[in-house]
């Protein structure tokens, strides 16, 4: 079963005369363990697609099946349950300013309920050390650099071994080596644990690590490296829609 299956997805913003369609009939299936990059100019709809797939917005029309569950019509409880199986890396890191690096990452574990505190602590310290923050574990975000904050946010997203990681410009605040390290880590997670990663990025330096690159323009998929590699699976319907289905 593919972890993400999007079919005929449309999305609008605003109401009444100001209502404007942002996503047009997008269909996309993403394989388990793959690292998919969504690219496109600003306003192309890539972040909207990311948030719809990530259970952060209500699906208005079409189908989004996430880990086998249909998100169209999902209630709050189901959305919360699904979100706990995901990891999010935000562009603006969104760390809690009054929590230390360790406590911020711990929040990624405690969302699953009470656990053994010492094991949780070990897991947190391990991932922070892996990301080169072993010496900053007890620092508050205010005392960390932008890159260090982003690595804490990445640790928070990954510490609970999510099934899928959604990332929005995760390497924007990182230097080349750190950026590569993070993306390599995400790729390794895919290979070792089957973690699927969907990433929005403008960072060309990391494209070589992507398994697949999907390009959006004006709310439509205009290019898909997987389809280009396998033209036979590519189909077009509904005007400019490009449908790709690896599972087929």
């Amino acid at each position: 079963m593919d972890p993400i299956a999007v079919n005929g997805l449309n999305h609008w913003f605003g109401t009444g005369e100001a209502r404007k369609q942002a996503i047009f009939d997008v269909s996309l299936t993403i394989e388990r363990g793959s690292l998919t990059v969504l690219m496109g100019p600003s306003g192309s709809g890539k972040t909207t697609v990311l948030t719809l797939m990530g259970c952060l917005r209500d699906v208005q029309q079409g189908s989004v099946r996430l880990l086998g569950a249909e998100l169209n019509g999902a209630d709050t409880a189901m959305q919360e349950t699904m979100r706990r199986r995901l990891g999010f890396i935000f562009q603006a890191h969104n760390l809690h300013e009054s929590l230390t690096a360790r406590q911020n990452v711990l929040m990624g574990l405690q969302v699953h309920g009470r656990g053994d505190p010492s094991r949780q602590r070990d897991a947190v310290d391990h991932i922070l050390t892996l990301l080169g923050l072993g010496h900053r574990i007890d620092y508050l975000p205010g005392n960390l650099s932008g890159g260090q904050k982003q690595r804490v946010a990445i640790a928070r997203a990954l510490v609970a071994n999510p099934d899928i990681v959604f990332a929005d410009e995760p390497t924007a605040a990182l230097d080349h080596d750190s950026g590569h390290l993070v993306v390599e880590m995400l790729k390794r997670l895919g290979q070792e644990r089957g973690t699927t990663t969907v990433m929005v990025t403008h960072d060309n330096r990391i494209l070589d690590l992507a398994d697949r690159i999907v390009t959006l323009e004006d709310g439509r998929i205009v290019r898909d490296s997987a389809s280009l590699a396998h033209p036979a699976t590519m189909s077009t319907g509904g005007g400019s829609v490009v449908r790709t289905d690896h599972g087929a």
């Binding site: 990530g54 952060l56 919360e80 349950t81 699904m82 979100r83 706990r84 199986r85 995901l86 999010f88 935000f90 969104n94 760390l95 809690h96 300013e97 929040m107 990624g108 969302v111 928070r156």
Partner: peptide, 9 residues
């Protein structure tokens, strides 16, 4: 910050 936690589930 709360919205971040909300996104985390």
């Amino acid at each position: 910050e709360y919205a971040t936690f909300k996104a985390m589930g």
